[in-house]
Design a protein around this nucleic acid. Structure first.
Lengths: 192, 192
DNA sequence: CTCGGTTGTCTAGCGGTGCTAGCATCAAGT
DNA sequence: ACTTGATGCTAGCACCGCTAGACAACCGAG
């Protein structure tokens, strides 16, 4: 028994190594550089080993996305709970969100831009993704305003943050003015 | 002279054919299906011909993006000028924008998601892109509110639309409720 | 302690990608 | 009519995601 357990442990360990290496490589050189060959070389195994853990590259991206979604949820909750009052909370949430996107661009892409084979907005959406949305909802639902469904309000506020995050990073919006943009979104969208 | 002119005309015609075919193929089967081989076969020339018109695939995507940006600007202006009053104008603009993104997903990606080698938010930004932003600014600048820079306001409003458009299409937001989302954005962000 | 069988990993290769070197062809200008 | 230059083609490079099949290492049974 113990032999099989050890092997299982080692296998799980190697799987974590694959995901961590893929993430590292993506952050360092972009997702284009994350090829199965390079990834295999970095973990010091041959290519087919990757396919004994994941169905394909898409599933590896998906694994990075789930890991990232968990961290995003944590970051958002931590920021929101660190301050008092709805205005400060929403503002802190927005900053935490944009900060995460800026500091982990590859992971953010894995979650929201790339095809990781993940389902969204269905009942079979993976838990980390649902939880990340829940983390937003916890703070944003409070400021939806009367007669506005908290979930729908959260979606719109989130979409606005997402737009700012992606357009900024893609060079479509000039950097800087983050503080200003967040203030505008919070002041106008949130009902305090 | 006339011979050279004819050749130049034919060459320009072929370039248009390449861009139109790339766009068509992308809309039909997605950008992944737009390979240089398939594209060459569709225009009934060999691959290297593509490279006598464009530096590479990226530049072809860029050409589709520029064409799309021009159309987007036109669509936005047409929608805005068709109605009276700031509220209706901004609402019409938002609908036109989201409509364009939904009906031309591949072109929208070429403009805003893919790497077409285009510069944004610099002085050497291609004219069609600057003009598309200008089209937004014309209507949105009016409702920025006092003390708020029209350009910065336009960027934020645009980012919100972009977020809604991309998240919806990627399945990250449930479809439907478009009317509702637009109303929320217009009512809260715009100062009427 | 040996021996089958299973389990795990690797080498090699398939069809595809973007891109290019170098050759053939054909038309224009002398 | 001949040369010359432009033009498009064939063939091939290095790389991609992915997989079949060979091979080695380890397990439990006798």
């Amino acid at each position: 028994m113990s032999v099989q357990e050890r092997k299982q442990r080692e296998r799980a360990e190697r799987e974590r190594l694959i995901v961590a290496t893929a993430r590292e490589l993506a952050e360092q050189q972009g997702w284009d550089a994350v090829t199965t060959r390079r990834l295999a070389e970095r973990i010091e195994y041959s290519q087919p080993v990757l396919y004994s853990h994941f169905q394909g590259k898409r599933e590896i991206i998906g694994a990075v996305a789930l890991e990232g979604a968990t961290e995003l949820a944590t970051a958002v909750r931590a920021a929101a709970s660190a301050v008092e009052g709805p205005r400060a909370r929403v503002s802190a949430l927005a900053h935490a969100y944009l900060d995460f996107a800026e500091r982990n661009p590859a992971v953010y892409d894995a979650i929201f831009q790339l095809d990781g084979g993940l389902a969204f907005a269905h009942e079979d959406t993976p838990a980390p993704l649902k939880d990340a949305f829940a983390a937003l909802l916890e703070s944003l639902g409070e400021v939806a305003g009367e007669g506005v469904h908290p979930g729908l309000f959260t979606e719109v506020f989130w979409a606005a943050l997402h737009g700012v995050a992606t357009l900024t990073r893609a060079g479509r919006l000039p950097p800087g003015d983050v503080e200003w943009r967040v203030n505008l979104l919070v002041d106008r969208l949130a009902v305090l």
